[in-house]
């Protein structure tokens, strides 16, 4: 069972306090978008063996959403950061690169 640190209230707590919200950094495509854009937004999801950016909500705590970079194979957590972030923070990207030089980047 994972141990997560909520960047909004600072609590480090077990997974049962949180709920997972799937992949992070998706761009919403609404009316006027092409079928391909809409499909990418709604259905195309990464499923990596390795670094994954994901959405979590501190459901039983402060109620806030946040984002997390996690390794799906080793379960290492590279960091959590606020949901109001359009791309992974540089310090987390550096940390991932240091641990996984072969990582191809988040996009």
């Amino acid at each position: 069972m994972l141990l997560l640190t909520c960047p909004c209230c600072g609590v480090t707590a077990e997974e049962t306090e949180f709920s997972n919200g799937g992949e992070a950094h998706l761009k919403r495509f609404g009316p006027g978008s092409t079928d391909a854009e809409y499909e990418a937004y709604m259905f195309a999801r990464k499923n990596p063996r390795g670094v994954h950016f994901e959405r979590w909500r501190h459901a039983y705590g402060c109620g806030k959403w946040f984002l997390m970079a996690r390794d799906t194979m080793t379960l290492e957590v590279y960091g959590t950061y606020k949901a109001q972030t359009t791309e992974p923070p540089a310090d987390i990207v550096d940390k991932i690169k240091a641990r996984r030089p072969e990582w191809e980047g988040y996009k």
Partner: peptide
């Protein structure tokens, strides 16, 4: 309620 918070916090 969670759905509303999701859109307000994340989008």
């Amino acid at each position: 309620h969670a759905w509303m918070e999701d859109w307000l916090q994340c989008e």
